[in-house]
């Protein structure tokens, strides 16, 4: 087995030189198509980690990517179906980027 591996192509997928097409249905990050949003705050209520903040008055919707556990609860509950689970994962941030 070891010798076979030596002389065959390694199983390594050369990320980041190559990027794999994310799988259909992979849970990556949440996006809100704000134009359809009614700011009903249902997603805020249902979010188990309080990652979503919706302000009805100011009509803002925000998600803290450092809190979201991609459980899909908000997508399931959204009455307008404006929330979408993207297949791409949210990116990492350095401390400096975060405080900016």
């Amino acid at each position: 087995m070891v010798l076979k591996s030596l002389f065959s192509k390694p199983a390594t997928y050369m990320y980041p030189l190559l990027t794999r097409e994310p799988m259909v249905g992979s849970r990556g990050s949440i996006v809100n198509h704000v134009d359809q949003c009614s700011y009903c705050t249902l997603c805020q209520k249902k979010c188990p980690t309080d990652a979503i903040v919706v302000d009805r008055e100011k009509k803002t919707w925000a998600i803290d990517s450092m809190r979201c556990i991609t459980c899909n609860a908000c997508v399931d509950v959204c009455p307008k179906s404006c929330l979408e689970m993207l297949t791409t994962y949210s990116s990492s941030k350095t401390a400096a980027e975060l405080s900016r």
Binding site: V2, L3, S5, L6, P10, A11, T12, M14
Partner: peptide, 11 residues
């Protein structure tokens, strides 16, 4: 490198 190849890795 050779070890990695034997383990199916790029190395």
């Amino acid at each position: 490198r050779i070890s990695a190849r034997m383990q199916g890795r790029f190395g």
